[in-house]
């Protein structure tokens, strides 16, 4: 059953020098129980995608298309309705744990806050609930630690706290934006293991630039390039038989495959070439690649790819 159905989602930012398109015509369906990874280079619009579903973009963002959650288009919902969705139905694990926690509130308060606004849990029950959450995320001495402030924790611990905050109200969908960024390898592995355990029976939208994270957590993967999805499919298959040259390049560029970087740089927002946007960096580009812009086509049973070679 489809939990979140995004169709034709485009985002533009209005700046002083006109509008800058950041996301273009994104279609993505997330079924209950799916763990979908959205991968791409920094600056390709991954984070904006998550924020646009949560309706948390700044006021100069113009969002078009639709994002249907449980039959309701979130992009049309008013602010009150969104407040009922945020944290309760869709929760977010933001990137950069050092700055997303409020420095002047204890982490216990910050975790309890979601419960206070979305549930009738109060007093002793609330306290017990927070301690249960912290314990389930492997935070030792929860009684003592919930009185502490964010700066007193290490990056890995703050990540656990963020996960606890997201899980607090048992949401239908969790959007995790780079949950392992800035952590050293050992801690990263621990957090990935933890995420794998707690996300077992949940629906997850994982936003990351790290292929390892995606393959460890996601059942499905969408590859994003310059604000559009270029390939989609089951993670295992996609990583074993990448179809799009960009996906192939990404995999070849990963450390385990020997660091073969893709030549060139991603186009800046609003400055995409005519034809296929990846064409200037593509090793198998032909003449027609620089004229016709390919659409996202179904290939095989469950794969989608945006490349003229598969037309």
């Amino acid at each position: 059953m489809s939990l979140l159905e995004i169709a034709g989602l485009s985002v533009q930012f209005e700046g002083r020098d006109g509008t800058v398109p950041v996301l273009d015509n994104i279609d993505l369906e997330i079924n209950s129980g799916d763990r979908v990874a959205l991968i791409g280079e920094s600056g390709c619009g991954k984070t904006v995608f998550g924020m646009s579903v949560m309706r948390l973009l700044p006021s100069n963002a113009r969002v078009t298309g639709s994002a249907r959650y449980a039959g309701r288009d979130l992009l049309l919902a008013d602010e009150r309705e969104m407040q009922q969705v945020r944290g309760k139905k869709i929760a977010m694990i933001s990137q950069n744990s050092a700055s997303v926690l409020n420095p002047v509130l204890t982490i216990g308060d910050q975790i309890a806050e979601s419960l206070t606004i979305h549930t009738s849990c109060r007093g002793k029950d609330l306290h017990r609930e927070v301690i249960a959450l912290l314990t389930s995320l492997g935070i030792e001495r929860p009684e003592e630690n919930m009185q502490k402030y964010p700066h007193q924790f290490s990056g890995g611990m703050r990540e656990r706290i963020l996960i606890a905050m997201a899980l607090a109200c048992n949401p239908d969908l969790i959007i995790a934006d780079e949950p392992t960024s800035g952590l050293d390898a050992l801690v990263k592995a621990q957090i990935l293991e933890l995420l794998r355990t707690v996300m077992q029976d949940r629906t997850l939208l994982l936003i990351t630039h790290d292929l390892g994270t995606a393959s460890a957590l996601a059942s499905h993967t969408a590859v994003m390039y310059a604000g559009e999805i270029v390939e989609y499919g089951p993670t295992q298959e996609l990583f074993t038989y990448p179809l799009h040259p960009y996906t192939q390049g990404l995999i070849a560029a990963s450390p385990s495959a020997g660091f073969h970087p893709i030549p060139g740089v991603s186009p800046a927002p609003g400055q995409v070439p005519p034809g296929c946007w990846f064409c200037p960096r593509c090793t198998c580009a032909t003449d027609r690649c620089s004229t016709g812009h390919p659409s996202l086509k179904k290939t095989g049973t469950n794969r989608q790819v945006r490349c003229l070679r598969y037309d």
Binding site: E79, Q83, G87, S99, V100, N102, E113, I117
Partner: peptide, 15 residues
């Protein structure tokens, strides 16, 4: 402009 304000909104807090 700080990130924790966005976090607070993402929890579903009203303005």
């Amino acid at each position: 402009g700080e990130d924790y304000i966005t976090t607070a909104r993402a929890k579903g807090l009203d303005e």
